[in-house]
Write a protein that binds this DNA or RNA. Sequence first.
DNA 1: TTCGATGCAAAAGTTTTGCAAGTCC
DNA 2: GGACTTGCAAAACTTTTGCATCGAA
Lengths: 141, 141
Amino acid sequence: MALENQELRKAGLKVTLPRVKIYQILERAGEGDHFSAEDIYKLLMEQGEDVGLATVYRVLTQFESAGLVSRHHFEGGHSVFELSRDEQHDHVVCVKCGKVREFHDPDLVKRQNAIAEELGFTITDRTLYLYGVCKDGCEKK
Amino acid sequence: MALENQELRKAGLKVTLPRVKIYQILERAGEGDHFSAEDIYKLLMEQGEDVGLATVYRVLTQFESAGLVSRHHFEGGHSVFELSRDEQHDHVVCVKCGKVREFHDPDLVKRQNAIAEELGFTITDRTLYLYGVCKDGCEKK
DNA sequence: TTCGATGCAAAAGTTTTGCAAGTCC
DNA sequence: GGACTTGCAAAACTTTTGCATCGAA
């Protein structure tokens, strides 16, 4: 538990209950899990924490600025968040079951860098989503 | 001018003034130009057309369903639209000047397909945005 | 004439903000 | 104690919808 406190402090954020709780939720997520602010808010409610939705948004935004989490805009008008990991990765989103899988492909990144170079462009961030359908275990929607 | 009427009819949409005007605006756009609903609404106002914002949204959504336009979610909480062209392409977005450039790289697509294949996934759509800074002609923000 | 399309206003959904009260160090 | 945080409510935005009216075929 001291772990997340470290992270928060390192990011220059005071260690408060809402921040710790939100961090824990994100930390507990499995690969491919992404939470919206609303999701996190509901989880906090369920576990009896008294945290306002506005605070969830504020905290997530702070975490993002601090580089602790990444924000994604999948389809559907709202943002989802996940803890930043060292290794950057891209996303495959099943439009049928909503499942998200992640992958990292060095060749892809290399090629992207080359393209940016050709265009006289310095990349600061990138975003690749592949949308489609799982061939097999695509459970009901 | 019969041209856009053809397109609309082909899409099963009645040829009405708002649709034609909106189509023309999109048609007139240069490469890399992307308009939000608000942008289009303002342009229509400027040229004295009396079209409601709700209609702009409705028409753009219909155009999207008909495959006439593509919708993108760059950063910033709103959608932008561009006329669909035959050739699919990806986007480079300058976070400083807002300029958007487009590119198409067959190798990139091939690699993406291979990855999807490995993951047992059938791609229906894909989205790649490279964010960064133009090295040279990046005019004021 | 007959549906479909539009405009307006109101609703809906997500995210942000103002401010008084509370919390961390 | 003092600065930073939080909760709540209200505001801001983007997008959607209900409905009476209007327009294209």
